[in-house]
């Protein structure tokens, strides 16, 4: 079990000190991600507060696995909900019950930090990075991206897939692009 999972067990027992440690560890990810999606510091703080208080009020929502990946998905969904508060949500939360091998995720993203990932993203071909960022931060579907950029859908799919694969490989240190 990793540190965050252990802290979450203590949060379940209403331990404020454990919660504070989690906040210190993850607020930069949550706030930064919300700010990137919303481009509004005030709204990003609101989302950050909502995400952390949701965790405090309902720690059982986290059902194990990689905490950083989980809190990032929660934050992105919340921020995208704010962006299109009157529109339909693009994709529901990834169900945590999917039988996913988490150990893989642990190995690749054990020591992620903003600077290292930004550097890795910089090394992707620009069109791949753009497709990924439009989808993730912009909340655009692959069809939206194809329509807005005038690029065939098949090409958009390939760019997303190749880009994610390459990013993974760069972070694993398998290849240098």
């Amino acid at each position: 079990m990793n540190d965050a999972s252990r802290l979450m067990e203590r949060v379940r027992a209403r331990d404020a000190a454990a919660f504070e440690t989690l906040y210190d560890e993850y607020h930069r990810l949550v706030y930064g991600l919300a700010l990137r999606v919303l481009a509004d510091p005030g709204a990003a703080e609101d989302v950050t507060q909502a995400v952390f208080l949701k965790i405090w009020d309902n720690p059982a929502l986290f059902r194990g696995g990689n905490f950083g990946g989980w809190i990032a998905r929660v934050t992105r969904n919340r921020a995208l909900d704010v962006v299109r508060s009157r529109a339909v949500r693009v994709q529901e939360d990834v169900p945590e019950s999917l039988p996913v091998d988490e150990s893989l995720e642990e190995t690749v993203i054990a020591n992620l930090d903003g600077a290292r990932v930004r550097d890795a993203l910089e090394r992707l071909p620009r069109e791949q990075r753009e497709a990924i960022e439009l989808g993730f931060f912009g909340g655009a579907t692959q069809e939206d991206i194809a329509r807005e950029t005038g690029i065939p859908l098949g090409t958009v799919k390939t760019r997303i897939r190749m880009g994610l694969r390459k990013l993974r490989n760069v972070l694993e240190g398998v290849v240098t692009v």
Binding site: L33, E105, D113, G114, V117
Partner: peptide
């Protein structure tokens, strides 16, 4: 397909981390 998903999910988490704010 699950293998493909499992291999790409860490990259998506990494994309999220690229927005991490500074201390």
């Amino acid at each position: 397909c699950r293998r493909e998903y499992e291999s790409l999910r860490p990259a998506v988490t990494a994309v999220a981390y690229s927005a991490e704010a500074c201390e």
